[in-house]
């Protein structure tokens, strides 16, 4: 579903991504690990079409993002580290706004069902987003992804700043989505969450994917050790 072939990106003379090959199949949760500047966010931005690759290709559901970003985005949903919504709209209104912009128009009951499914309590649906916590905004972000009926989900540090309960709730949602066949690519620093959620893990360093391993097989302590070894200069 999400495929990178020899994906290459430079910023001036600095190589941000070096011939990345990656594939995330439907129902998979792929966690990209690595220190700041390893190329995780650049990979996500290339899949989103925010950046143009200098070589190789990023495809979403078979569509080359660089050639047809709008068609590629039909299959994508994105949850950034900070889900920033319109503060003068309620959660329900934000969901309706972004869904309609994405080309999906739902009845109010259906929109409420998406919010409910993403874990946002009913009393918050009609409250202005300016009163929401970060976790509540992330839930609206998930609801937007649900409403979009995306085949692939890109997440950039989604659990950063969430309390453990919210983080746990978020993980459960990801698993639900993966269970429905959504391909999920997640950039994160959170080894614990990556270990518990991901079906596959990739460790990046200086723009290269240096290790790739299966999530369920690896022990948390081994993952931490491998990670520290991988990022050590």
């Amino acid at each position: 579903m999400l495929t990178a072939r020899s994906l290459h990106k430079k910023f001036g003379s600095a190589i941000a991504l070096h011939a990345l090959d990656l594939n995330v199949a439907p129902g998979e949760i792929y966690a990209l690990l690595g220190p700041n500047g390893a190329g995780k966010t650049t990979t996500i931005n290339l899949f989103l079409g925010f950046l143009q690759p200098d070589g190789g290709s990023a495809t979403v559901a078979g569509v080359n993002v660089a050639l047809d970003p709008i068609r590629a985005r039909h299959a994508l949903a994105y949850i950034p580290e900070q889900v920033n919504l319109y503060p003068h709209f309620s959660g329900l209104e934000n969901l309706s706004y972004f869904s309609e912009l994405a080309g999906q128009r739902y009845a109010e009951t259906k929109l409420r069902a998406f919010l409910q499914e993403s874990g946002l309590q009913a009393e918050a649906h009609d409250r202005r987003v300016s009163t929401y916590s970060k976790g509540m905004r992330q839930k609206v972000g998930i609801a937007i992804a649900l409403a979009k009926d995306a085949k692939a989900l890109l997440l950039d540090e989604p659990t950063s700043g969430l309390d453990p309960a919210a983080s746990h709730e978020f993980s459960a949602l990801l698993k639900t989505l993966a269970g429905r066949g959504v391909a999920i690519l997640m950039a994160t620093h959170d080894l614990f969450r990556a270990k518990s959620d991901a079906t596959r893990l990739g460790i990046m360093r200086h723009g290269r994917l240096v290790h790739e391993l299966g999530g369920p097989e690896v022990r948390a302590a081994d993952l931490e050790k491998l990670y520290l070894e991988s990022i050590a200069d």
């Binding site: 994508l76 889900v83 920033n84 912009l101 994405a102 972000g141």
Partner: peptide, 18 residues
């Protein structure tokens, strides 16, 4: 500045038209 651009830009719409 408000950070909503990231969500908007990830949608399948012509940003220019929007």
């Amino acid at each position: 500045e408000a950070g909503t651009l990231a969500l908007l830009a990830s949608l399948p719409l012509s940003f220019r038209r929007w």
